[in-house]
Design a protein around this nucleic acid. Structure first.
Length: 594
RNA sequence: GGGGGUGUAGCUCAGUUGGUUAGAGCGAUCGCCUGUCACGCGAUAGGUCGAGGGUUCGAGUCCCUUCACUCCCGCCA
């Protein structure tokens, strides 16, 4: 028997009435009636109400004890009267009459309350994370995280995947995010980099003949944080398979997701078979490559209508002539919405940095006409054209944006979310998964105007590899895919290019010479030259999966010890200064101390 | 790097048009209370109004600068 307890705080019930028991835990709450004291004792498993009265010599001491003190109590289980049963807790039919108690861990005055559902400032939560983590919701989130990871691990094992660890200290890679660097003591002036993902290693695992690999892999990227993006580090379910095509990866991952989400959430899956949307179509219909498919709104391109002579919307017409696009969103049956509904959206769009959203409502009097600030610019025939293109009906409204393709995609994507939410079109009780496929191999870098890899440089281009037209690189598609759920990008993956010659040609397009490639990716390119199997994989983000399952909007709510937005750990005081001696050993000196 | 929001007691927040000694709830301390489960009642302590500067007879409130936290843009193959 344990020195500290005979039962956990969720275990006692009517069957145990009369038993002498010991419990250990935190004092969650006290209710002091002067001559009678209730103590809610909490541990990881639950809460048990303990009770003591003034007849007991321990009464005065317990009355004074701080909340969150860790104590052990010895006592007897007694039945509660019918009126005093508490159905909110598992042990609500009984209580423990305290005989003796012992303080196991004292508690100073609390900097933040543990027993409350109230939200409080992030800063104090992070500094006292160990207290914050005692609170119900986040405590449960972290337990959920453990269970999900354990479930995934088990599923992967069942599917024949082998779990391997790959190095944490590795080399800096020229592509992608900013690296975290670690100075090498034994190699002065040189640095390791923490892996942004075990990308090259997992491919090497395939070349090494292990066939199916996975890992709950820590990934490190020195980029700025967002609500759904931890600064610094996060976890991926990294996986890779040999002798597979895109569909084979899809089948494995889709099953895994369906099983995981059905097991850990009450929400319905909108699609058991995830729809596949080509990148190009997604950009057109949703303005983004991470569409929220819970939202029924769709974006239409009606640029051509603005070339008509009977459309007199001169601002847009002028822009269209200089290459701009007009995209629109149709809202069903909104003709009776108040003017403020439309104006709010226009105002909101301006706050997003767009020039606003024009709108009109289609009505029918003698004939079809458009009402609203820009309605007068449209003829009957032009409206009919728009109605055909967009399947809009009388009574529907149309929100219009005009601009360069990227601008118009961005604002319509945001507007689609905004209008969907405003109109209550989004079902919060479903998960809508989809695959985004057929990513382009390359894109134009907006800053440098040069061509660059749009995703992973190791992806396999689509089509006959002997007939790829390297003269038109922007037209080359890759076997590159993402999983998106409810507008959140959960994973991206690819079938890899395992053919060195092809790799050189693809890198040549972005200006890497053969020797550049040999140098920067020596491990990879060398390995691919010694008999590499065709292979591919994907890497779903664990933290975001847990976010969805826990119904949280912020990744810190599912991360045990997160850093703040400035990548500082307020509890451990990281990052911190180091001694001169440490710097000296590493051959480093700090240039500007501030 | 840029934009928005927030910053008042240990915690969560209120504080009107610039006007007396800056308030409430929770927590803390002290007292009362034997059936609560957000127990109740009474009292006490607790404040660099994030910091600095300015306007003013007078600033928590207005202006400027700055710091911290947060959300977004950039960034994240």
């Amino acid at each position: 028997m344990s020195k500290f307890r005979t039962h956990k705080c969720n275990e006692l019930n009517k069957q145990k009435i009369g038993d002498k028991v010991s419990l250990s835990g935190w004092i969650n709450k006290k209710r002091d009636h002067g001559n009678l004291l209730f103590i809610d004792l909490r541990d990881n498993y639950g809460i048990t109400q303990c009770i003591i009265d003034k007849e007991n010599s321990n009464f005065k001491k317990l009355e004074k004890i701080q909340l969150e003190t860790v104590i052990k109590i010895d006592g007897k289980v007694v039945e509660r009267t019918n009126e005093s049963i508490n159905n909110d807790i598992e042990t609500g039919e009984i209580e423990v009459v305290i005989k003796n108690f012992q303080v196991l861990g004292e508690c100073k005055e609390l900097p933040l309350p543990v027993f409350t559902d109230r939200e409080y400032a992030e800063e104090i939560r992070l500094k006292y994370r160990f207290l914050d983590l005692r609170r119900k919701k986040i405590h449960e989130n972290i337990i959920l995280r453990s269970k999900v990871i354990s479930f995934i691990r088990n599923e992967m094992n069942k599917l024949g995947f082998l779990e391997f660890q790959t190095p944490i200290l590795t080399s800096s890679s020229p592509e992608g995010a900013r690296d975290f660097l670690v100075p090498s003591r034994l190699n002065p002036g040189k640095f390791y980099a923490l892996p942004q993902a075990p990308q090259q290693f997992k491919q090497l695992v395939m070349v090494s003949g292990f066939d199916k690999y996975f890992q709950i892999a820590p990934c490190f990227r020195d980029e700025d944080a967002r609500a759904d993006r931890s600064p610094g580090e996060f976890y991926q379910l990294d996986l890779e398979m040999s002798f597979v095509e895109q569909e084979d990866v899809f089948n494995v991952v889709e099953k895994l997701f369906v099983n995981t989400f059905k097991k850990f959430s009450k929400k319905e899956l909108l699609f058991n078979k995830f729809p596949k949307i080509a990148f190009k179509d997604s950009m057109l219909k949703y303005g983004t490559d991470k569409p929220d498919l819970r939202n029924p709104l769709v974006i239409y391109d009606i640029t051509e209508t603005f070339l008509r002579d009977d459309v007199s919307f001169e601002i847009f017409k002028k822009l269209v002539k200089s290459g701009s696009k007009v995209r629109c969103i149709v809202t069903k049956n909104t003709k009776d919405k108040p003017r403020s509904f439309f104006d709010n959206i226009d105002k909101w769009a301006k706050e997003q940095g767009a020039s606003g959203l024009a709108y009109f409502t289609i009505e029918k009097e003698k004939e079809i006409l458009a009402k609203g600030p820009v309605g007068k610019f449209f003829s009957k025939d032009s409206l009919n054209e728009i109605m055909t293109k967009t399947e809009a009906k009388v009574g529907d409204s149309i929100f219009l944006a005009c601009g360069k393709v990227e601008e118009v995609e961005k604002i319509t994507a945001l507007a689609r979310d905004k209008i969907g939410k405003d109109l209550g079109l989004i079902d919060e009780n479903v998960f809508a998964f989809c695959w985004i496929v057929d990513y382009p191999m390359y894109e134009i870098d907006n800053q440098t105007k040069k061509i660059k890899f749009s995703h992973n440089p190791f992806s396999m281009p689509q089509g006959d590899i002997n007939k790829i037209n390297f003269e038109k690189p922007l037209e080359i598609l890759a076997y590159q895919y993402d999983i998106v759920c409810n507008g959140i990008e959960l994973s991206s993956g690819a079938i890899r290019n395992h053919i060195p010659d092809l790799m050189y040609k693809l890198f040549d397009v972005v200006g890497y010479s053969r020797s550049d490639v040999d140098q920067k990716f020596s491990g990879m390119i060398n390995a691919l030259s010694y008999g590499a199997p065709p292979h591919g994989g994907i890497a779903p983000g664990i933290d975001r999966i847990i976010m969805l399952l826990a119904n949280e909007k912020n990744i810190r709510e599912v991360t045990m010890f997160p850093m703040n937005q400035n990548a500082q750990d307020l509890m451990m005081n990281a990052p911190s200064s180091v001694s001169e001696n440490q710097l000296k050993e590493l051959n480093l000196s700090i240039k500007n101390k501030k």
